[in-house]
Write a protein that binds this DNA or RNA. Structure first.
Lengths: 156, 156
DNA sequence: CGTGAAATTCCACTAGC
DNA sequence: GCTAGTGGAATTTCACG
């Protein structure tokens, strides 16, 4: 895989913000003619730098005003247990992020729901299958920043 | 704003996964002919349900292997302080999520960086401007699930 | 090998039913 | 909501640096 030059990064920066932009505009913005710009985008897709293109939806319009971070501790550390837990949690559409952590907590989840009541249903579903040592929920009062745009300055 | 019927939700579900899909395929998938399907998509955009369309990049390919959750506590609670903190943190491109929380921690951040060393630089930048009471960093060992797809079952 | 211009094909979008 | 037609863009081909 070729390394990314300044032009590639400029392209990525723009596409991260708006993938709808016509190729002509994109090319102009990075001081290129449409074809070479298109070629670069193709290469970035083939190389897997650009994984896919998605529509972002407004949580408020979908009645999803509540964001909860759930930190989970367990004393079960067998592979079989993890596989079951993994499968169970991944299924839940309200869980939009799910990490295995180092340190105090074992897992961290971000859950989006319409209300506290709806969160309680998800919570019950979480603890239903796997036996968890400790589950602690923190509610977000305000979403100050939330972006899918990754920093590009570290690319090799 | 009209409420979302099953067809709208089917459209949203598909576009959340892949916004590149040609209108003809999308229409076929939801048992519609292209034009009415296109009309629905237009309306969803106008209503602000679909906010925008973005390219998702592979963090690994951008040398962003490390995810850190940073919980911040402060004893400064004035509006002026918050405004400064807000502005400072929002600027930092490595901070991809930033919430004001209820309960123990005051703020929660998700930071993506290439390495522990790079995180330390971000950390220093964080504590530089605003005086923070407590900053605790938790490292993600494994990203099990991370999706931009929101649950659609609660839409009114 | 990467870049710029022209030809073609395909798809978003409009109008009529 | 479906069918057909148009405009315009994305994609391929070819020539050049």
């Amino acid at each position: 895989m070729k390394s990314l030059d300044a032009t590639d990064r400029a392209i990525l920066a723009l596409l991260q913000e708006d993938a709808d932009i016509p190729m002509a505009k994109l090319a102009e913005a990075v001081n290129l003619s449409p074809t070479p710009c298109w070629r670069r985008v193709q290469r970035l897709k083939e190389d897997g730098v650009i994984t896919r293109q998605v529509a972002l939806l407004d949580p408020a319009k979908l009645n999803l005003g509540v964001t909860v971070f759930v930190s989970v501790r367990t004393n079960q550390h067998s592979q079989a247990w993890f596989d079951r837990f993994h499968a169970a949690v991944t299924q839940i559409p309200e869980v939009v992020e799910f990490y295995r952590m180092s340190g105090e907590m074992d897992y961290l989840l971000r859950v989006v729901v319409p209300s506290i009541a709806a969160y309680d249903a998800v919570y019950k579903r979480l603890i239903a299958g796997s036996d968890l040592f400790d589950v602690s929920s923190s509610f977000a009062m305000e979403e100050i920043k939330l972006t899918t745009a990754l920093p590009l300055d570290y690319a090799l």
